[in-house]
């Protein structure tokens, strides 16, 4: 938690500042109202699932640019698989469709991992090609036609749409189902990363692959596993997003999501140099992105400025983080020098 305190404070400050500006300017209090908080939580959860996936890859020192296209692919495939033929679909049973999507996501991650470890291709190139290929497949399979679920499929839709009221009714605050999913995934990921040997191997190989290999760790397998997690969570994220949005356009659904996921992970403390990152931090990072988007809406800032504001905010966050790290490192160096002096008399 100590590591994530900074990012948590940034998150809280952004929320407070947004609220204060809105309130002082036009007496607007909607930002912290139950309804809006519910939306914030849901969107944080949807992005958070993707960010946790890419965090594993970033921790190995790699990158996954294909996430948005995998979201797009599984997002169009789900309705395409399960809706009846008169709707353009294949009328598959839902469990079979989910199983197929699981296999497809797994194969995508496995392919990335194998190409990167066995053929020693660069992660950037492999996943960039993936970005193009999966987008193309989405469009071909659906003949570029919009996909939707119609009125049925309440069960699966409730994964994204379900919500549980918390607190008095007047608050209008709900815990969205995706948030519960994020909590479960987050806890599993955090345990895996911090308490099992596999997590430690990922951290070690991300920083010094040779050291890990010379310690008898099967680094290739560990790296492959990271890409598999990333694609699996992207595939699962695609299902959630599709259920939430309802109408899915093959050419645009999920565009840029890999960049949001990466931004969330980096904001949350993952270093692109590898070997660093925490799950809680990544979730906070995603929350910051979502809050910024929301703030722009609520404060009536022109939506044309959205990208610019988000970009600058991330940049400032990263600069502040770097400055803090340098000050801390300097302090440590001085301390060590003093220590050494004491020891050598």
């Amino acid at each position: 938690m100590k590591k994530n305190l900074g990012i948590f404070l940034i998150l809280v400050s952004i929320m407070l500042i947004t609220f204060l500006i809105g309130w002082l300017k036009e007496g607007e209090t909607s930002f912290l109202e139950g309804g809006n908080l519910t939306v914030l939580l849901k969107r944080t959860s949807l992005f958070g699932v993707l960010s946790i996936g890419v965090a594993f890859v970033i921790i190995t020192g790699g990158i996954d640019l294909s996430i948005g296209s995998v979201v797009g692919l599984t997002g169009v495939l789900l309705p395409f698989f399960i809706t009846p033929p008169d709707n353009g679909g294949m009328d598959m049973p839902v469990p079979l469709a989910l199983f197929l999507i699981f296999i497809i996501s797994l194969s995508i991650g496995l392919t990335h991992g194998l190409l990167i470890t066995k053929l020693k291709l660069q992660p950037f190139v492999v996943t960039l090609c993936g970005l193009f290929v999966y987008r193309g497949i989405s469009r071909v399979v659906t003949k570029d036609a919009n996909q939707g679920f119609g009125i049925g499929f309440k069960g699966i839709k409730s994964m994204a749409k379900g919500k549980f009221q918390v607190g008095p009714e007047s608050w209008e605050f709900f815990l969205p189902a995706p948030f519960l999913i994020l909590i479960v995934i987050g806890i599993i990921a955090a345990i895996y990363l911090n308490l099992t040997v596999y997590g430690r191997y990922l951290l070690a190989l991300g920083r010094n692959e040779i050291a890990a290999r010379f310690s008898g760790i099967k680094t290739d397998n560990m790296t492959i596993s990271a890409y598999v997690f990333s694609s699996l969570l992207a595939g699962f994220g695609g299902i959630l997003w599709a259920c939430d949005v309802g109408s899915i356009q093959p050419s645009g659904f999920g565009n840029f999501y890999e960049l949001y996921a990466i931004a969330g992970a980096v904001l949350g403390g993952c270093s692109l140099r590898g070997g660093e990152g925490t799950i809680l931090g990544v979730i906070f990072g995603s929350a910051i992105l979502v809050c910024l988007q929301n703030a722009i809406n609520i404060l009536g800032i022109s939506s044309q400025l959205e990208f610019a504001v988000i970009g600058l905010a991330i940049l400032i966050g990263v600069i502040v983080d770097e400055v803090i790290k340098r000050v801390a490192a300097k302090r440590r160096a001085i301390q060590n020098a003093l220590q050494a002096k004491l020891e050598s008399g």
């Binding site: 951290l203 070690a204 190989l205 010094n208 040779i210 050291a211 890990a212 760790i217």
Partner: peptide, 14 residues
């Protein structure tokens, strides 16, 4: 050959 992001102990038993 150490992973400098980990502790001394974590490296010794890596």
């Amino acid at each position: 050959n150490l992973a400098d992001n980990l502790s001394i102990g974590a490296n010794v038993f890596l």
